[in-house]
Amino acid sequence: MEVRSWVPVLLLSLAACSKPGGGDASANSSAVTLLNVSYDPTRELFSDVNAAFSKHWEAKRGQKVTIKQSHGGSGKQARAVIDGLDADVVTLALAYDVDMLHDKAQLIPADWHTRLPDNSAPYTSTIVFVVRKGNPKGIKDWEDLVKEGVTVITPNPKTSGGARWNYLAAWGYALRKPGGSEATAQAFVEQLFRNVPVLDSGARGSTTTFAERGLGDVLIAWENEAFLLTQEVGKDRFEIVVPSVSILAEPPVTVVDKNVDKRGTRAAAEAYLQFLYSDEGQELAAKHHYRPRSQAVAAKHASRFPSVSLFTITDVFGGWKKAQAAHFDEGGVFDRIYVPRAR
């Protein structure tokens, strides 16, 4: 009897110690803490969003909200949440990683992506090329990447979520061009990867390889990373080339149901994600080089985001799970592209 009575007390006090302000946070209390588990290149975006949302929420509900951010590779972040990291919301690079929160740990329902507008991706990006100043190799479109003597930098799609978008963009281009088929697409991607001298494990690694090591003629990158590189890091050293066709990259967001219900933070967490769809949130996304979903905000920034013919993962690959299984899992197309070249 005695033992039983102190166990919950001990657990409660442990919980209170481990997450100050989290254990007792509820919709009615005066302060709430949220943890946003995100991927690498969103650090600056979310520090702005967090400040803006805190103001917005306090004005609306009179509740102080502190949002903590965690960044890392998208897959690694998803695994941390699966293994018990108390994320209230996840904002990751690809839907496949979010799907795993359902498949591996039942943290969210299977239809999570229908809960918010636009497949639960409040902002988008696409895959573009970065070339050296003056575009010495005359790179204009995907076709130029498979030419002899052109070296291409892209990270390893097996370890980098971002690189999977790059790979699928190339595949989709080859598949959809006149006369394209699965076979020609595979041949195209195989040819492309022959021009890749190094496979960094993450997208930032590839950017470093291209920008600092001077390796490669073309870097395949997310548009927001490309902007960062050309406007902030390497001003006047690089140029962006937008291909004729590319993929619509939709980095999804969701509330982690099990965690918000346990912590009593659902109201704030859901409002936080909805805030991303507000004009203010959309403006911040545009400021940080993501394409806004809102037509009105997008129109204001139209000059910065050239129009590209964009296809989605669902259009071409039937969704992330199918794409992952066919291309990136063990024995998938990516492995087959490499194995015949064994010495």
């Binding site: 590779g73 690694k76 695994r79 795993m100 498949d103 390893n156 097996k158 063990e330 070249r341 064994a342």
Partner: peptide, 17 residues
Amino acid sequence: LRTEIVPLLIITRLEQY
């Protein structure tokens, strides 16, 4: 097949869950 170390293969597998 050329410059992959074993720990990288392990990470690769983890990335595929």
